[in-house]
Measured scan of single mutants.
Amino acid sequence: MEVRTIKVFTTVDNINLHTQVVDMSMTYGQQFGPTYLDGADVTKIKPHNSHEGKTFYVLPNDDTLRVEAFEYYHTTDPSFLGRYMSALNHTKKWKYPQVNGLTSIKWADNNCYLATALLTLQQIELKFNPPALQDAYYRARAGEAANFCALILAYCNKTVGELGDVRETMSYLFQHANLDSCKRVLNVVCKTCGQQQTTLKGVEAVMYMGTLSYEQFKKGVQIPCTCGKQATKYLVQQESPFVMMSAPPAQYELKHGTFTCASEYTGNYQCGHYKHITSKETLYCIDGALLTKSSEYKGPITDVFYKENSYTTTIK
């Protein structure tokens, strides 16, 4: 009895394709271990004539594949690729409408935090270190965002349907971005203890939790000093293409032309909904596939993004 075979390709990165001759009487799992086709788990399936010449994702289970996976995804987590594939199996079914010149995501599976993050990423200057993220990001900007969303979920250790947080998501993504040249110098002034300067680099240099107003941050924000008295913390120097200011959701007025974009969060910790506000020729609110415009805006804002380049204080 002759062994019926077909020729397929296996890959971990969709760049390096490895030619395989597979036995049609055995499952993919018996031949390769966990195997995925377009995100779908085909591990328990036997090869079919229609699979001839198709590319299958496999887990990096030998040295060659491990090197290829690390170079593309910059992670050695053995569960990463499987999590990416199972997320992709959902995100490829989502709709990605162009809204006001940006790629958004039609609401499904509690994905409003991903839509808000995706919209924000198209408006701030950011370059990702893992080629996987950078490639998928370019495709997302062009309207094909399924891979990018699935990668975000995998890097953030999230599953489809789980509630997510924009600030946490951005923080994970910033860790995989090139923020080497970003720098922030802060000064804390206390009447009792004097003053202390701190220099922050990388992710810490672009994120701040405690106030939404970048102007206020430049002037000074009140913080408790270690001595128990009130101290003032203010920005001395900022070198970065953008800054992200966050605070627990509270009524906040966004003035046209003073910011790049913002995240609105309605609801409580267990259950809520994100919308995205962007400042173009007027203010726009993007909620999944829905767009509304207004000249002014007041609502429960939790993150505001500002364009920056270089700032030095005039406070002496």
Rank of each mutant, 00 (worst) to 15 (best):
T260G: 07
P78S: 13
C271F: 14
Y138N: 15
H74K: 06
G53P: 01
G101I: 00
V21A: 12
T192Q: 11
A87L: 07
Y274F: 15
C149G: 03
D287K: 02
S246R: 04
E296Y: 15
Y214F: 08
P300T: 11
V304G: 05
F9N: 11
H51C: 05
C156E: 01
Q134V: 11
T55G: 04
Q238L: 02
T314P: 08
G143Q: 01
L235M: 02
F70W: 10
E71S: 00
C149M: 06
K201A: 08
F148P: 02
V12Y: 03
G143A: 02
Q222W: 06
G194V: 03
A247P: 04
T103P: 01
K307P: 13
A142C: 15
S295F: 12
K219N: 09
D180Q: 14
L212N: 06
E162F: 03
Q222V: 12
F32G: 03
C182R: 07
G228E: 02
K307N: 14
D41I: 08
I223L: 08
T192K: 13
G101R: 05
V203R: 11
L163T: 15
Q216H: 13
A136Q: 08
H90T: 14
K233W: 08
L121Y: 02
P34M: 15
Y311Q: 10
K218A: 04
S246Q: 02
D165R: 09
N89P: 07
E52R: 11
K316P: 08
K233P: 02
D287T: 04
L235H: 03
P60C: 15
D165I: 09
V8S: 01
C261W: 00
T64S: 11
L17R: 10
G53S: 11
N157F: 07
E264D: 07
T313H: 15
L102R: 01
Q123T: 06
F242P: 05
Q196L: 10
D62Q: 10
Y72L: 11
G53H: 15
E168P: 05
L65Q: 04
V236I: 09
P60V: 07
H276E: 05
V221M: 09
D63L: 12
V185D: 04
T19N: 12
E253S: 10
Y284C: 13
D135Q: 13
E144G: 05
C112P: 07
D165G: 13
Y138M: 15
G202E: 02
I105Y: 00
L186T: 11
L151S: 05
A69N: 08
C182M: 04
H74W: 05
L200S: 09
V42S: 05
Q270R: 11
T282M: 12
Q20P: 02
V160E: 01
A205N: 05
A205C: 03
S213Q: 05
L37Y: 11
P34L: 08
T292D: 10
V236C: 05
Y269E: 15
T199Q: 13
T232D: 06
G210L: 07
A108C: 08
K44C: 15
G210M: 05
C193E: 02
H176W: 13
A289K: 05
P131A: 02
Y36M: 05
A262I: 03
Q270L: 14
K7W: 10
N178D: 13
K233T: 10
A136E: 12
D165Y: 14
F174K: 01
K233C: 11
T91I: 04
L173T: 01
P47I: 01
A262G: 05
I286R: 06
G143I: 00
L153W: 04
H51T: 00
N49Q: 13
N16L: 12
S295H: 08
Y72N: 14
I45G: 14
Y297G: 06
Y252P: 03
G228N: 05
Q122V: 02
K46Y: 14
T314M: 14
Q251S: 09
Q230A: 08
A205H: 01
S294I: 13
Y57A: 04
A231N: 03
S86F: 03
A231H: 06
K93Q: 15
I277Y: 07
G161C: 03
A142P: 01
S104G: 08
L133G: 00
T278R: 08
T282W: 06
A40N: 10
G164L: 04
T302K: 02
P47R: 01
V99T: 11
K54M: 07
T159E: 12
S79C: 02
N110V: 01
T278K: 08
Q98T: 13
L290Y: 12
D180M: 04
T75N: 08
V188A: 00
R4H: 14
D287Y: 04
C156M: 14
Q123V: 00
F217D: 04
T169S: 00
I152K: 01
V42H: 14
L126M: 14
K255A: 08
G267F: 09
N89H: 07
V22S: 04
Y252N: 07
A145M: 05
K191H: 09
P249V: 14
Y138S: 13
T199A: 07
T55M: 06
N49H: 14
A145K: 00
F242Y: 04
T192I: 12
T211M: 14
P60F: 07
I105K: 02
F128K: 01
C271M: 11
G210I: 15
G257E: 14
K92C: 02
Y36K: 02
A177W: 01
G194P: 06
E264A: 06
I223S: 14
G33F: 00
P47V: 07
S86H: 15
G220M: 02
T169E: 00
F259S: 05
L151N: 02
E2H: 09
M24D: 06
K127S: 10
V221K: 05
E162V: 02
L65T: 10
A140G: 01
I286M: 01
L81H: 14
N100W: 08
R167I: 03
D77W: 00
Y284A: 06
G288T: 03
N268E: 15
V22P: 09
G299W: 02
D77H: 06
E296I: 14
Q123I: 04
K275T: 14
F242D: 06
P131N: 02
F80H: 02
I286G: 03
V236E: 06
D13M: 00
A205P: 04
K219Y: 07
G39T: 11
T211A: 13
L290I: 11
L186K: 05
T43Y: 08
A250K: 12
A108E: 01
C149R: 00
S171K: 14
S294C: 12
K307F: 06
S263C: 11
G29I: 00
D41L: 08
G161Q: 06
Y84R: 03
Y234K: 08
A289V: 07
Y73L: 01
K219P: 05
T116D: 09
V99W: 09
P130N: 06
F148S: 00
I223W: 10
V22H: 01
C112E: 15
W107F: 15
T313G: 11
L88M: 06
L17G: 05
I286S: 04
Q20H: 12
G39Y: 08
F32C: 11
Q134I: 11
E68P: 06
Y96T: 02
Y265C: 10
F217E: 04
A145H: 00
C285Q: 09
I105Q: 01
G220C: 01
S279H: 04
L37H: 10
T266I: 13
M207D: 03
K233M: 10
F9S: 08
A69F: 14
L119P: 03
L163P: 13
W94A: 00
Q251L: 15
Y84N: 01
M207G: 07
T258G: 08
A145E: 00
T313W: 09
G143N: 00
I223T: 13
S294Y: 09
T116N: 15
G161K: 02
F70R: 14
D165F: 00
L114K: 01
Y234G: 04
Q195A: 15
T314N: 13
S263G: 04
T27H: 07
D41T: 09
G101E: 07
S86P: 01
T313A: 15
Y269T: 12
L290T: 11
T266W: 09
T11Q: 04
P224M: 15
A136F: 04
C193F: 04
Q31R: 11
D165A: 11
C285F: 06
Y96G: 02
C156A: 11
T199R: 10
R4V: 11
P34K: 12
Q31L: 15
Y36Q: 05
Y155E: 00
N157K: 14
G228T: 04
K275I: 03
C271T: 10
G53D: 13
Q195W: 11
Y306F: 04
Y172Q: 15
Y57T: 12
E239M: 09
P34C: 02
K316Q: 15
T75F: 05
S86C: 15
H51Q: 08
Q134P: 00
T260W: 09
L291Q: 08
